[in-house]
Simulated scan of single mutants.
Amino acid sequence: MDAVNRQILNLLVLNGRASMTEIASVVSLSVPAVKRRIDRLEKDGIIRGYTAITQEPGPSKMHALVELFLAVDTRHRDAPSIFGERPEVRMAFTAAGESDVIMLVQVDDANHLESLLIDLRRHPAVQRTRALVLLKNLLDRLPA
C-alpha cells in the first residue's frame, strides 16, 4: 500500500461520507483515480465496509475493555463464536500479550457488565476474563 492509499484511508476513517471530490483535492488526484483506488481497496478487503455510529438518547452507557484468555487449543478465528451476536460487544480484536482477545463492550451498568462476564466465562474455550471499566473519553477519532 502506498502513501496515497494510506492518506485516502485516513480521510475515510475521519469522515466516511467524504466525497470523491473532497478526497481528490486533498490527495491531488483526479476523481476517477480516487474512485479506482477506493474500489481496489474495497476489492482487496482493506476497506470492509462503512458504518454509521449513533449516539442513542437516554441514560449514558458504560464502556469497558474485556480481555478473554482462551484455552490453548482455541484458535483466534474461532473467537467470534464466543461472543457471537451479543450487541454489547462493539469491537473485538485479537491481541498480542497475555490475553488472546480484547473487546470493547457497551453495557447499561455494572450489573449488565457482570452478567456479560458471567455469560462469557460459561463458554468452554474461555479460561478467564479481565475487565477494565472506561471512565471518561479524552479523545475520539472515530467518525461522528
Rank of each mutant, 00 (worst) to 15 (best):
D109M: 02
T54D: 09
I82V: 01
Q55P: 02
P87I: 10
P80F: 06
I46R: 07
R77L: 10
D78P: 04
R48S: 12
T74V: 08
E98A: 13
A92T: 05
F83R: 01
A64N: 02
P80M: 10
G84T: 03
A79W: 01
E85I: 01
V89E: 01
V105T: 03
E98F: 04
M62D: 02
F83I: 02
K61I: 04
S99L: 00
A92K: 04
E98R: 14
I53K: 13
A71S: 09
I82A: 02
L104D: 11
E56P: 12
A71R: 10
Q106T: 12
R77A: 11
V66C: 08
G84L: 06
D109Y: 06
P59H: 07
M62W: 01
E85D: 15
E98Q: 11
M62G: 06
F93L: 08
R90N: 08
R86P: 00
M91I: 12
P59K: 12
H63E: 12
P59L: 07
F93Y: 15
T51W: 11
Q55K: 15
F93E: 09
T94C: 08
V89L: 04
L104W: 07
V105R: 03
V107N: 06
F93M: 10
G97C: 06
V107D: 05
Y50H: 14
P57M: 07
A64M: 01
L70R: 03
A92G: 01
T51K: 15
P57Q: 10
R48I: 13
D78A: 10
Q106P: 00
V72I: 09
A79G: 07
H76A: 14
I82T: 00
Q106R: 15
D73E: 13
G49L: 11
P87Q: 12
T51D: 09
G58K: 05
V72K: 13
H76G: 15
